[in-house]
Simulated assay, not measured.
Amino acid sequence: MADIEREAMEYDVVIVGAGPAGLSAAIRLKQLDADLNVVVLEKGSEVGAHILSGAVLDPCGLDALIPDWKEKGAPLNTAVNEDNFYMLGEAGQIRIPNFPMPPLMNNHGNYIVSMGNVCRWMAEQAEELGVEIFPGMACSEMVYGENGEVKGVVAGVFGLEADGSYGPNTELGMELHGKYVFLSEGVRGSLSKEVIAKYDLSAGKEPQ
């Protein structure tokens, strides 16, 4: 809807999605340059609301990003102390020995976590560094510049008609422009799919 006049806000970096990837990027950017203006937009009513909750987490990424995460109270409380593998069938379950399993199946040193809680904690760390985080701000459209480059996103559009069109009661939202725009929506994000199609980014690539 390029013909719609919206209020625009300018940032150095606009990040779509307050999951582990988006929040890690925001934290790292502020660690590298505290003067950067970084904003994270999250469609959920709160950070973590759209995160697949249960996970086994390898803390190596957290070790690199926030080495003192234990002192900062990261919610990694339950260490994995045993791995058991079973083959399930009509007759029940059969235990499989651990030794033929690939190394990635060894979870010793990892933690059983709620990724929703981990993301909420990461959001706190990001905000302490000066990152702006806007929950409840779904991004519905990309904004492109005069030369076809990604310029930003449209966020905060509410009250669309049943067919998805703009009506008299539609809140038009605002444009958030960034020198860089990170799309970390998760798998099959609508904006990511649009950008992939526009720039033919999947040509010659495997989907994964």
Rank of each mutant, 00 (worst) to 15 (best):
G22R: 05
G136Q: 02
L176G: 07
H177L: 12
V38K: 08
A126I: 10
E132G: 00
D58K: 10
I51Y: 03
Y86D: 03
V47S: 06
V16C: 08
S140A: 01
E175N: 11
P97Q: 08
S184F: 07
D33F: 06
L191F: 11
E124K: 04
S192K: 00
L62Q: 02
A8N: 09
F99K: 06
Q93H: 09
F99W: 09
K179V: 11
G19H: 04
R95E: 15
V181D: 03
K179Q: 15
A18Q: 07
L191Y: 05
V154A: 09
A26Y: 07
I96M: 15
V181K: 00
E42H: 08
D33I: 03
S45M: 10
I112T: 04
F99S: 13
G89E: 10
G22A: 10
R6K: 04
D58E: 12
A55Y: 10
Y11R: 03
D33N: 08
G89A: 02
A126T: 07
I133P: 00
C60F: 05
D3Q: 14
N117Y: 01
Q93Y: 06
R188H: 08
V187I: 06
E42M: 09
G130T: 00
G186V: 12
D163E: 12
P207C: 13
L176K: 10
L29E: 11
S184E: 15
L57G: 10
